[in-house]
């Protein structure tokens, strides 16, 4: 039993949301990633018991989707968009600045386990290209300079919770769309912040 009671309780609550146990597989994998920073084999065994499917079926799903990480990620996952809109708006230089600052190649994690860098396909922020996600919290309208500033801030301040609006205010530029509602919830792990499965955290101002 590698999962503690608190995590198991959260898992059972998630499973209750679905008519079939195995439908909870996706969210449970996020819990596993929240716990370890990646999907460990121990967690796969745990999940297979929770939702009554075999380990290899869990592994099949977790290895299919690129947001379930097979290797340990750093505290901050930097996902820089390389798709068409961002490319046109010079995402290459944003990518290069991240690479230069962190010294990482694609899918690499630094020795301090602080940053993981990856180039990703469209993250749905074309209106504010180029865009980047830090632990799946989106910042739009970046420049190479602002990008380095952001990385430095992450490195020095080591914020516990990343909130998209805050990042946007500090480092972002043009935004696709402004919801005009202050949102203080963000992500504390290399997992998207979802309120219904408890991966979202609220940040005090």
């Amino acid at each position: 039993m590698s999962w503690d009671n608190e995590l198991l309780e959260r898992a059972h609550k998630i499973i209750e949301l679905y008519p079939q146990k195995r439908s909870a597989l996706g969210p449970l994998l996020y819990l596993a990633q929240e716990k370890d920073g990646f999907i460990s084999d121990d967690s796969i065994v745990e999940i297979s018991n929770l939702v009554d499917i075999t380990e290899v079926q869990v592994k099949s799903v977790s290895s299919f989707y690129s947001m379930y990480k097979e290797e340990q990620t750093g505290t901050y996952l930097l996902s820089v968009c390389k798709s068409i809109s961002c490319e046109i708006n010079d995402s290459r230089s944003v990518i290069n600045s991240v690479k230069e600052f962190t010294g990482l190649e694609n899918y690499e994690t630094d020795q301090d386990k602080l940053f993981t860098f990856e180039e990703v396909e469209c993250i749905g922020a074309c209106g504010g290209a180029p865009a980047i996600q830090v632990n799946y919290e989106t910042v739009e309208g970046l420049t190479p300079e602002k990008t380095i500033e952001m990385c430095e801030w992450l490195k020095n301040d080591k914020p516990e919770i990343i909130v998209a609006d805050q990042l946007q205010n500090k480092f972002g530029g043009t935004q696709s769309f402004d919801w005009a509602i202050e949102d203080n919830t963000g992500s504390a792990y290399t997992v998207p912040g979802f309120q219904n499965i408890g991966t979202a955290k609220e940040k005090d101002n």
Binding site: I53, T54, E55, V56, Q57, S60, F64, S66
Partner: peptide
């Protein structure tokens, strides 16, 4: 009814395999 082999990975990396130690 004993699915102990499955596709692992995706795209051109897809392979059939078992879970380690299973």
């Amino acid at each position: 009814g004993d699915p102990l082999i499955e596709f692992i990975q995706r795209g051109n990396k897809t392979e059939v395999n078992t879970f380690p130690d299973e």
